[in-house]
Amino acid sequence: MDGLSLMTSRWIDVCALEEVPIRGARRLEIGGQTVGVFRTTSGEVYAIENKCPHLGGPLSEGIVHDSAVTCPLHNWIIDLNTGQARGADEGCVARFDVEVRDARIFVNIPV
């Protein structure tokens, strides 16, 4: 690899839409990192780094409500749109673009 290569990303065909439960999440192990794939009541799909900015809690295991997830370890609330912690807490996780095509979920992962 030469030193000039740009940051690139690719779309990963993750799974069928219904494999992620509504108000639930799944983990995606990819390229040495874990991504949480979330599906909200209103049917939106999000993908964020599966590591709580507090102490690294696995966000995919939390309770999903409106467009946020509450971390299972100490209840920080992470917004799925922005990756930011809500309320008084401060911190942020990476978020990835998601597309739903023909009822399958695609996530754009940097490589």
Binding site: C15, R26, V37
Partner: peptide, 13 residues
Amino acid sequence: AHEFAALAHVPAE
């Protein structure tokens, strides 16, 4: 079953 299995395994480069 979906609770326990992760989705796709793409090995790290």
